[in-house]
């Protein structure tokens, strides 16, 4: 099973990105093999609809879990339709959040925002 996290650098010890749709990369972590790869977010510089395209990218990576500090309405709709579980991240690095998830320390994301313009 794979986990997707928004990232602004390709270093697993860098902080999780505070924005989902416009993060520069997504870290895709495979729970079984413990392998990590980074996908470039081609939506990061989109004028509009970044959340949709970004969520599509994560759906296509076959992640079943997303860990993010926040999420816009459109991205939420895409991830939700793809039956991806969304958890709220805690302060810390990408890898810290993977560990917290594995330890069952993360909560499901309760709030989504209406998007920013």
């Amino acid at each position: 099973m794979k986990i997707g996290l928004p990232a602004n650098s390709t270093d697993v010890n860098s902080p999780i990105s505070d924005n989902f749709g416009r993060a520069l990369y997504y870290m895709i972590y495979d729970v079984e093999s413990e392998e990590t790869r980074f996908e470039k977010n081609t939506a990061a510089m989109s004028q509009g609809g970044a959340g949709i395209k970004a969520a599509q990218l994560v759906v296509d990576s076959e992640a079943k879990i997303v860990i993010t500090p926040q999420l816009g309405e459109n991205a939420f709709n895409v991830l939700n339709s793809a039956k991806i579980e969304i958890y709220k991240s805690e302060k810390g690095s990408l890898m810290d959040n993977v560990r917290l998830y594995k330890d069952g320390q993360l909560q499901l994301l309760a709030n989504i925002h209406k998007g920013r313009h």
Partner: peptide, 16 residues
């Protein structure tokens, strides 16, 4: 789509 108004989810196109 230049505006990212379309997504492919579970093998189905969704229009935003």
């Amino acid at each position: 789509c230049a505006f990212n108004a379309l997504a492919m989810i579970s093998e189905k196109i969704t229009v935003f």
